[in-house]
Design a binder for these strands. Structure first.
Lengths: 212, 212
DNA sequence: CAGCATATTTGCAGTTCCTGTAAATATGCA
DNA sequence: TGCATATTTACAGGAACTGCAAATATGCTG
């Protein structure tokens, strides 16, 4: 009758709790005093752990602010993208990335605070950009998989991988644009609307072009 | 008769010499041992200056490798872009940025060594990317200026600045794509060819789209 | 050239981030 | 309960970086 409630072991729960405690304290301090005026020591004192534990969890001071939980799409998400109805690689990829960033984080409040802090701290913003761009390689793979699923092949299109890279680069650019608007608070819309709005802008921009 | 040879004062020449000595030593050591295995102390010993002097010059360890001086486009370049014949914002902006990056470094040998080291050091590569993306804000301004020069105005197009940002974001994405290829050594072409190639790819990618 | 003003270099103390190591403590499990 | 393993902690120390004031070098004027 009684379902085992113990989905997670005590250890795991404590770990999660500690991680969240530290991160919350860090972000709170960061927003209050500014990133560079917060020392690891302060964060540790506020969250009642040793410095060594802090570094065990996050590896670096920046890590506690920048590293989100998992920010790679789940296999299901990837599958959905690869075999998607997919008339629009661009829109679909944008959605996939947006999903990965937003839905991955269960705590929306913390997520927003985190991004507010990152947005107002050049050092963290750069790191965040770097982190995002590091995942691009994976996305190139997904786009290629999708192309293959659609029957497109390297034999028919020799520079198919270049094409994939370009798609990822463009989406990435669009993503940065969207993130910028989002943290600036100009996007209260749902993600669907956001995708639509961004897509429209891209279309307009590219349509206006008289290419060289 | 004798033209004053003293274009630069002794002080200035010494400064330049010291800077070059330190940077050269640093890059040599970096290529030899790898970035993270080189300490500032080693660089200082090799170039016979104190650590304090090192930091006076470069501000940080990364600085000696990444900072190339400021490379923003000259007023003439900007003017050329703003009032350009301009059938293609995209291509023109891409060219402007490419010009800005390649220009300016008188010492080609060192320039190449530097980029080789940056390319093989993720930490430096990220920093380099960050440095580039920091100039994006300025480019948004140039695009807006160009729009205005073309008679486009915020009154007729309320979200003109959004459009400018999107253009910069997309070009920036394309730029990263190009840099990636460049670092990988797949681009031996001239910049004109590079622009053409990138443009063609963008057109193909966007043309294939069935936008949402 | 002397001598003063200013620029540059340097030494040194101190802060902060971060790492290795080994001991102490907590949890999981038989 | 008691052992295996995971987690936390203290401690020592390396390396990046900053502020400060003294020492040195250069520029300039008379």
């Amino acid at each position: 009758m009684s379902v085992p409630v113990q989905e997670e072991t005590l250890r795991a729960r404590k770990r999660t709790a500690t991680l969240l405690t530290i991160r919350t304290a860090a972000i709170e301090l960061g927003l209050e005093k500014g990133y560079e005026n917060v020392t690891v020591e302060m964060i540790c004192e506020a969250s009642m752990v040793s410095q060594r534990t802090f570094f065990n969890y996050f590896g670096s001071k920046e890590g506690v602010f920048v590293t989100a939980g998992k920010n790679m799409p789940s296999p299901e998400q990837v599958h959905g993208f690869v075999e998607g109805t997919g008339s629009s690689v661009f829109g679909d990829l944008f959605s996939l990335i947006a999903d990965t960033m937003v839905d991955g984080d269960p705590n929306l409040k913390l997520f927003r605070s985190r991004h507010q802090l990152i947005a107002q701290t050049p050092e963290l913003l750069n790191r965040e950009k770097a982190r995002i761009s590091e995942t691009e390689e994976a996305f190139v793979g997904y786009v290629m998989a999708r192309y293959h699923f659609q029957g497109r092949d390297v034999s028919s299109t020799p520079d198919l991988e270049d094409e994939a890279r370009m798609v990822v680069a463009l989406v990435s650019g669009a993503m940065r644009y969207a993130m910028q608007k989002w943290v600036a608070g100009n996007f209260t819309a749902t993600r669907t609307e956001l995708v639509r709005s961004v897509s429209a802008l891209i279309q307009r921009v590219t349509a206006n072009e008289h290419w060289p």
